[in-house]
Each structure stands twice: as C-alpha cells, then as structure tokens.
C-alpha cells in the first residue's frame, strides 16, 4: 500500500485481496442467483425470523461478499425457511436454495465431501 502519511487504523482495514473467495465461488456455482442481489433489503423487511432476531439475508449476502463469513452463522441459524424473502425479492433470487447452499458451503464442521444417501 502507498504510504500517504495518513490512513485507516489497521483493525478496520478490509483487505479484499485476502478474502477467501474459493468458498464464495463454490456458493456461486451451487446457486448462481447469489450474484443477482442488489441489497435492497426486501428480504430482511419481510423475514419471519427477523421479527424476533437479528436475522437479515441482505447482511448475510453482503458479509459473504466481503469475506466476513463468521458473521453469517449466528444469523442464518434462526432461519425458518418459510420462503417469504423469495416471494418479495425483486430480482427473483431463489433465496431458500441460497440459504441451504450457504449451510453446505460455509457450515462449521470440516467434512467437505458430498455424502451420498
């Protein structure tokens, strides 16, 4: 980085180049709709779980794009998959499948391979 003689404090620096993108790419492969989000927040406004908790699908998608994966699980675990966000989304994102896919790609456990039923 060029030293301008002033700058952000290091703790607030977000280094996009260091973001672990393979996971996001994997998510995009499973559900291409994730790229369609315009962060309008309709999903958050209509969310059943958002009525009771901090759950916000808009924030989840933004966090993933910014590589802040740790922030998403505390929100997503409240999702009841009711599908209201899917109905209101102006971009027609398949939000339920997106949430299910995030669970498979970013979940905490470390086994990665698809287990067959």
């Amino acid at each position: 980085m060029i030293d301008f003689g002033y700058g952000l404090t290091p703790s607030a620096t977000l280094r996009i180049e260091n973001v672990q993108n393979p996971l996001f790419e994997e998510l995009h492969r499973r559900e291409p709709d994730v790229a369609k989000c315009i962060a309008c927040g309709s999903c958050t406004a209509s969310c059943s779980a958002g009525c009771f908790t901090e759950m916000s699908l808009r924030r989840v998608i933004l966090s993933l794009q910014r590589g802040r994966e740790k922030e998403i699980l505390p929100m997503l675990q409240h999702c009841m998959l009711c599908g209201k966000c899917q109905l209101v989304c102006p971009r027609g994102i398949n939000t339920r499948h997106l949430i299910l896919s995030i669970g498979k790609v970013y979940g905490p456990a470390d086994q990665k391979e698809e287990v067959r039923p």
Binding site: A49, F52, T53, L73, L76, Q77, H78, C79, M80, L100, I102, G103, K104, Y106, G107, P108, A109, Q111, E114, V115, R116, P117
Partner: peptide, 22 residues
C-alpha cells in the same frame, strides 16, 4: 432423498431458542 441428503450435508445448525419468548 432430501432428508437423507440434508442429514449428511447440512452443516448449519438451527437455533430456534428465540421462540421461547413467544
């Protein structure tokens, strides 16, 4: 099929404890 698949691949635990407030 879906149930079997979710049981093995889903790594996102659900937490509905907030519903206790209702």
């Amino acid at each position: 099929y879906r149930t079997a698949q979710e049981k093995k691949n889903n790594r996102l635990p659900a937490d509905f404890s907030y519903l206790n407030a209702v």
